[in-house]
């Protein structure tokens, strides 16, 4: 695939700092992407403080808390898989990655039930029941579904990425001499965690 024109030195030379820098820059774009949504959130919360406070009672702090802990643990396991790789322990790397993927799946299942319950109660964007509520409620749940939805998409992308990492570790394409892809997958996963760290208090813990 890469020999179609030439043997570029950029392909031959493996530069982990370049790829890490590229990944960080990509993470910045993701931060700004969610950043814009946090601006929208804060403007609407500022304009509808009471409605936002009342609406958040619909969300279960317990599920939010569990999901937060799940993501934090998965973040730690991904970090530990990098440690294992640096120590040259392939088996541990694979185990930590598998745990991460498992936790991500549990997170999504929780999310599915959480969303399902809301939708069952008639609360979803554009629903008749939601439109009969106040402006603040419409915006709160609009933002809730949009932001957690976008976050869930990021979880799925992260899972795809980590699955690729998993198989590449297994067949040795990612190895202790060359593991930027694992590192970058990890960085992406931490980003997903980072965003959730803010989503949790903003949606579940309004006082």
């Amino acid at each position: 695939m890469e020999q179609n024109t030439t043997t570029h030195t950029a392909h031959e030379n493996y530069d982990p700092i370049s790829s890490k820098l590229g990944m960080w820059l990509f993470i910045f774009t993701e931060l700004l992407l969610f950043g814009a949504l946090f601006i929208v959130y804060s403007v609407y919360r500022y304009r509808n403080p009471v409605a936002f406070h009342l609406a958040h009672h619909e969300l279960s702090i317990t599920i939010g808390f569990i999901n937060t802990v799940i993501l934090l643990i998965s973040s730690a396991t991904v970090a530990m898989s990098i440690t294992a790789m640096q120590k040259g322990d392939k088996k541990a790397t694979l185990i930590f990655l598998a745990i991460t993927l498992l936790l991500a799946t549990i997170f999504l299942i929780n999310k599915y039930f959480e969303w399902g319950a809301k939708i069952h109660h008639g609360i979803y964007p554009g629903s008749e029941f939601l439109l009969s509520l106040s402006h603040g409620d419409i915006l709160f749940f609009g933002l809730y579904f949009f932001m957690t939805g976008l976050h869930a998409i990021h979880i799925i992308v992260g899972m795809v990425l980590l699955t690729i990492v998993f198989f590449r570790v297994r067949n040795g394409r990612i190895n202790p001499d060359r593991y930027s892809f694992l590192e970058n997958g990890g960085l992406y996963w931490h980003l997903v965690d980072l965003i959730w760290i803010f989503l949790f208090p903003l949606f579940y813990l309004i006082h």
């Binding site: 820098l21 990890g186 803010f198």
Partner: peptide, 29 residues
């Protein structure tokens, strides 16, 4: 709530995302 969230985010950035040990250009950016 926001201060605690920021602290958590900082911890993730510094330790999990390795900013503490990487080149300072990353911290700067």
């Amino acid at each position: 709530a926001m201060m605690i969230a920021s602290t958590k985010a900082a911890i993730v950035l510094i330790y999990f995302m390795h900013l503490k040990f990487d080149d300072k250009i990353f911290r700067f950016m």
